[in-house]
Design a protein around this nucleic acid. Sequence first.
DNA 1: ATAGATACTTGATGCAATCAAGCATCATCG
DNA 2: CGATGATGCTTGATTGCATCAAGTATCTAT
Lengths: 143, 143
Amino acid sequence: MAVPSGPVTASTDAERAMFQFVDAYDRAYETAATKHGLSVAQACVLGRLADPRGMRELADELGCDASNVTQIIARLEGRALVQRRTHPSDRRSRQIVRTPDGDALYAGFEESFAFARAAIANLSAEEQDRLTTLLRKALGTTD
Amino acid sequence: MAVPSGPVTASTDAERAMFQFVDAYDRAYETAATKHGLSVAQACVLGRLADPRGMRELADELGCDASNVTQIIARLEGRALVQRRTHPSDRRSRQIVRTPDGDALYAGFEESFAFARAAIANLSAEEQDRLTTLLRKALGTTD
DNA sequence: ATAGATACTTGATGCAATCAAGCATCATCG
DNA sequence: CGATGATGCTTGATTGCATCAAGTATCTAT
């Protein structure tokens, strides 16, 4: 289990609530991944492969080194969840494609990752809208 | 950089907003930690040492194996950010104490981890309250 | 045609996380 | 008391993530 990332000394109620929310989210994600035999990184990569993607593209999206992606994809490929094809017009590049097994496994994972759905289910439609608005506004100058 | 944990195929605006918020939070935490030469796990452990704590206690709070804590503390101790004392009344147990250096470093880290503060600063007092309420309500049945 | 950029891989290293085993200490109960 | 079991922590081994430095193959552009 990844360690919870948050200041324990959160000074305001709002900070505490944010931390608890983020922590719960992260834990739920990891739990769902583990349940399907995936690491967090693997689940995350699989999730980005709804459409074929290149290694470079993945690395950029994930904000990590390309060699990291190489490793993760290698493991997924070893389990036949993913397949590497060479790009039709650029032979340096690989197209990573989720296999049907990968599709199925990932669907199961998302099904298990009920956190966001459950959180939303606790709110009325109006509350959902307000939360969305507030989260966006809170993010405003922090990106 | 840790990979962003979230479904890319978030189906609703609310889900997307949650994911983006969590992702931004996590990234900000990691960035702040890195800036002070800490890993996420190290920052997290340091943060729990405002008061002395035992290894077992830490492991329980973090939801991980005790041997994991042993490693992390060993590294922090190697940098003199933390000190191990044997518990006065139970000689099996260690009391982990942050050194003044550790206090200072962690204070710097929290100062850098401006995410929550900045997010809050984007909201009026009333909006903060509403966000807090909504986050708690959303968490309601999901813990 | 060559020089440089780009896409990816390989190898090496450090850290986090987990498991299995082990040691020391404590706590309990006969 | 003394044996038994539980508890707190460490060690050693293994796996995976992440990053860096180097290398190969391919593309691009002059």
